[in-house]
């Protein structure tokens, strides 16, 4: 097919309006055509937007159950299970947090640099299939990559005025080390911890006066060993 013609197939491809052989042909072309790949980003968004117009009834609840059962069965048997985590009582009352804004918001990473390095590190950790996942309460989760780099994703309520959340790395021996501050925002940006997490360390989140503290004074959540 002539080049200008095959470029023109990007829209039909985005709309799934190609038959199988046309689709294959376009995908082969796509692999080597940066222009089409770029164009397809916007055309794909526009085509997907049409999905919102096709509103219908809610899917039956049984579909969700069936899907999640399938997903559960589908888990690769060779995946190393996450280490068993222990249930630890939180040291402080959740009321401190609950008293803050009632809206559940995502993380606003205080001082999160937009440097590409940091974004890369976040993407690397979140995309690492071998990373360990640690829960901190029901609203926060830390992913720890092989090199100990760790990313926090949290949907804690906004810290009260004048307060901040502080993340702690608690080594097996020694005292808790500060690993970053955050308040909260709707964007729920994943936050790269400023400190790597050694094997066997625990993680904690405390609530502190704005600016943070050298030692945790009001721990909200503690994980089991990472």
């Amino acid at each position: 097919m002539e080049q200008e013609l095959i470029h023109d197939l990007a829209a039909a491809y985005a709309l799934d309006a190609l038959d199988e052989s046309e689709r294959r042909e376009f995908e082969e072309h796509l692999a080597s055509c940066e222009q089409c790949s770029e164009e397809l980003v916007g055309l794909g968004d526009a085509a997907a937007a049409l999905a919102y117009v096709a509103e219908g009834p809610a899917p039956p609840a049984a579909l969700r159950e069936r899907l999640l059962d399938r997903v559960h069965e589908d888990r690769a048997p060779n995946v190393v299970p996450l280490r068993r985590r222990f249930a630890l009582p939180a040291v402080a009352s959740f009321a401190v947090v609950a008293a803050a804004a009632a809206i559940v918001l995502g993380v606003w990473a205080a001082g999160l640099s937009s440097s590409l390095d940091r974004k890369d590190a976040i993407a690397r950790v979140l995309g690492d299939p071998t990373a360990t996942s640690v829960s901190l309460g029901q609203s926060s989760r830390v992913s720890i990559g092989k090199d100990g780099q760790a990313v926090l994703v949290s949907r804690l309520s906004t810290a009260p005025p004048g307060k901040t959340y502080e993340v702690w790395v608690i080594p097996a021996r020694g005292s808790a080390k500060p690993a970053g501050l955050f308040r909260v925002g709707r964007s729920a940006s994943p936050m790269l911890l400023s400190r790597t997490v050694p094997e066997g360390a625990q993680l904690g989140i405390s609530i502190e006066r704005r600016g943070g503290a050298p030692h945790p004074t009001n721990i909200l959540f503690v994980s089991s060993s990472a």
Binding site: R84, L88, A90, S93, S135, G137, R141, V222
Partner: peptide, 13 residues
């Protein structure tokens, strides 16, 4: 209210 750190795997998705 005390919150406990629950193992994620113990819960139904």
């Amino acid at each position: 209210m005390n919150l406990r750190v629950l193992p994620a795997a113990a819960r139904r998705p």
